[in-house]
Amino acid sequence: MLDDRARMEAAKKEKVEQILAEFQLQEEDLKKVMRRMQKEMDRGLRLETHEEASVKMLPTYVRSTPEGSEVGDFLSLDLGGTNFRVMLVKVGEGEEGQWSVKTKHQMYSIPEDAMTGTAEMLFDYISECISDFLDKHQMKHKKLPLGFTFSFPVRHEDIDKGILLNWTKGFKASGAEGNNVVGLLRDAIKRRGDFEMDVVAMVNDTVATMISCYYEDHQCEVGMIVGTGCNACYMEEMQNVELVEGDEGRMCVNTEWGAFGDSGELDEFLLEYDRLVDESSANPGQQLYEKLIGGKYMGELVRLVLLRLVDENLLFHGEASEQLRTRGAFETRFVSQVESDTGDRKQIYNILSTLGLRPSTTDCDIVRRACESVSTRAAHMCSAGLAGVINRMRESRSEDVMRITVGVDGSVYKLHPSFKERFHASVRRLTPSCEITFIESEEGSGRGAALVSAVACKKACMLGQ
């Protein structure tokens, strides 16, 4: 009897593995994704193909990295998701002549009506938060230079001027797309009239992360975010950046690689679950690469896999709870928690219980395998993109072996128990001629924006502006 049951459990697990095998990517698959990513990057950089390229390769006008001589107080704003952060950054000489960066910050959550109302409502709310922060720190009387981390696709015309191309991540505030974001912020500050600010720089969160990590390690020339969304930036040779005049030196390019796949480059790798996630998203047909990796989508992918296993009578005796059938019910943090389970399955059992399920031991094991399959594919897909960037940098610099540091931020990278190990191992397999160091950014977005502002202020002083 026991043997029969054991055989049935083994057969069930084997069927589960057959279904989950769809998520496995072979090294040849990853090399294919990497080569296609490089081709799209090239198209994004070139003037004649930029418009139709899915990977936009947006110039950021960040050319210099901090040298350690900029000092002063800077205000930093960070808008990239449902939370908005205001930070005071003091850049100065530390002990023994070292450079020191001290920060104080406060988080504000953005109400739904500000995210989806008008641009005026959104930026009025942001300036209200700045006003509140300055009151708390008794700094209303000071006109501070301000660095703005704005983590949406922007076409820069200068370091302090950028046109919002399109909202992502659930934002829909009308009247912002096609307009200068810094102008919208300046107008809102003017409307309030109770404080003055000098907006000197606007950067993407990947750029802010790279600059913040450069402060720790001067070989950091790539910034990457794996959180709600997924994106990367890197220092490109100016001669390859056709959208900006000049051939000397390097400029940081914001790849906006989340949109890779929007022209069909990933079609052969998309599964039924991916198509369902895409169809029910706020932007169907867009940001397809990001939807395979980002935390906004990972939990939902797992939920759809679990429903398939229920329908195949391989999980929960073929019956799903009402909660499990509800879109968004299986949160991405559950994926991390399930994979963090120590082996007694308590954590998995508790999560499934909150979803109205009474799982068996085998159910718990199957749910864990589903989570591992989805998150491992995410790590491997992400590795193909980064390997594409790094191999490109090595080739354009004609280096036999390139040493490089990548600064990384984002909740999936930082909080998932195995993502970074799987990701690092896969990147290294795909970049055999590179020695890569990964560092995690601390308060990256805010500190990085302030350091970019410090560079901009120093330049302005040198130019006598």
Score class of each variant (00 low, 15 high):
V412H: 00
I130S: 02
Y214E: 15
Y297P: 13
L315C: 14
D278E: 06
T116E: 02
L47G: 10
A454L: 08
A173H: 02
D409S: 06
C461R: 13
R429W: 13
D341P: 11
I348N: 04
A173N: 02
C233M: 03
G328A: 10
P59F: 00
G193V: 01
V55K: 03
S453E: 03
G446L: 15
L79S: 01
M462E: 10
S263N: 10
E95P: 08
K143R: 08
D278T: 13
Y125C: 04
L270D: 01
T103H: 10
F74P: 01
G385W: 05
E120P: 02
D194W: 00
A114H: 11
N204F: 00
D135I: 03
M115T: 05
L315Q: 06
E27Y: 07
L304S: 08
K420N: 07
R397W: 09
T103F: 02
H416M: 14
G407A: 10
V89Q: 03
L185P: 13
T206F: 04
R403H: 07
E52Q: 07
E27M: 14
S411W: 01
V181Y: 00
P417F: 08
Q24N: 13
K172L: 03
A320Q: 02
I225V: 01
S280K: 14
F330N: 12
C233A: 06
L355M: 07
S396E: 12
G117T: 13
G175K: 03
M107D: 05
P432I: 10
R46S: 13
D267E: 11
V241M: 15
E331K: 02
S321H: 10
M251F: 05
F423G: 05
S281R: 04
R5C: 06
G193F: 06
F330D: 05
G299E: 07
L314N: 11
E319K: 06
D363F: 06
V222K: 00
E27H: 11
E237C: 01
K15G: 13
K172D: 02
F148E: 04
R155M: 02
E120L: 06
K31G: 06
V389W: 13
G246L: 06
Q26C: 12
R46Y: 07
A425C: 09
H424G: 10
K459L: 11
F423D: 05
V305G: 11
T65K: 14
A320F: 14
R85E: 02
H317C: 15
F316I: 10
V408S: 08
V389C: 13
L463C: 09
K142H: 08
V338Q: 04
D400R: 13
G249S: 13
P145E: 11
S426Y: 11
F334S: 11
R327A: 13
D160I: 00
Y234D: 02
K296T: 05
L77D: 04
F269P: 05
L75N: 02
D262K: 09
M393G: 06
K420S: 11
Q323H: 13
T376D: 08
E372I: 13
K414W: 08
S151I: 01
F84E: 03
E120F: 04
W167G: 01
H50R: 04
E9S: 14
